[in-house]
Design a protein around this nucleic acid. Structure first.
Lengths: 101, 101
DNA sequence: ACCGAATATAACTTTAAAGCTATCTAACTA
DNA sequence: TAGTTAGATAGCTTTAAAGTTATATTCGGT
């Protein structure tokens, strides 16, 4: 599953927001959503497999925290694509300046 | 459909790359993919609805170009989330520096 | 060793996205 | 104005993601 596919789901984006500030136990995360525990657990699984979160066992609970690596991968794609766009925009403007002084 | 949902599909991401540099006709875009024309047309529809591309009629063909607005929206979400993460990382390091001089 | 709490996995159902073929629309061209 | 080309829409099928309940696992406490 690619980063963008993982980010497509709003529940998963919200989870990432919740664990960005500090690590949080799975149970507490689940409380934030209007769905069953297993459903949230499955989302956590997807996030783990994609490397977007990491887990740490603390007694009986599992603490999740953000792992920003894959996020910057996505950010890069956006930045590159946008850069290509503005490069071309600049070229166009330069051309207009030249032909229409 | 949210920006991230739209970006989840690899065909759509590739289309955005193809129209980032300069506007391109729908037919030429379709040639770049191993799928039917209508399938590509549907992706273009999704991209239009999301405001990620705009179209211009040129004779018999339709020229698509990137519209970067919604992209920066997605970029912002990533940036904010990452920022929250590093803010906390900084706080943690400061704490460690303080307790472990 | 046993029990309860926290979380994960299994098996299943429902829904929607993505593809296909066939058909329609719009614009240029003879 | 009839034909041709470019592209979009309609209707349909298949696949996979996301949810559900039930069951399994793992750890700490008694």
């Amino acid at each position: 599953m690619t980063v963008f596919e993982v980010l497509a789901d709003p529940t998963r984006r919200r989870i990432l927001e919740l664990v960005a500030g500090q690590e949080q136990p799975a149970g507490w995360l689940a409380e934030n959503f209007d769905m069953s525990g297993p459903a949230v657990s499955k989302h956590l699984r997807v996030l783990r497999d994609a490397g977007l979160v990491s887990v740490r066992q603390a007694g009986t609970q599992r603490l999740y925290r953000l792992d920003p690596g894959p996020l910057s991968e996505a950010e890069q794609w956006i930045a590159t694509t946008t850069a290509t766009w503005s490069a071309n925009l600049d070229a166009l403007e330069a051309h207009l300046d030249q032909t229409n002084p």
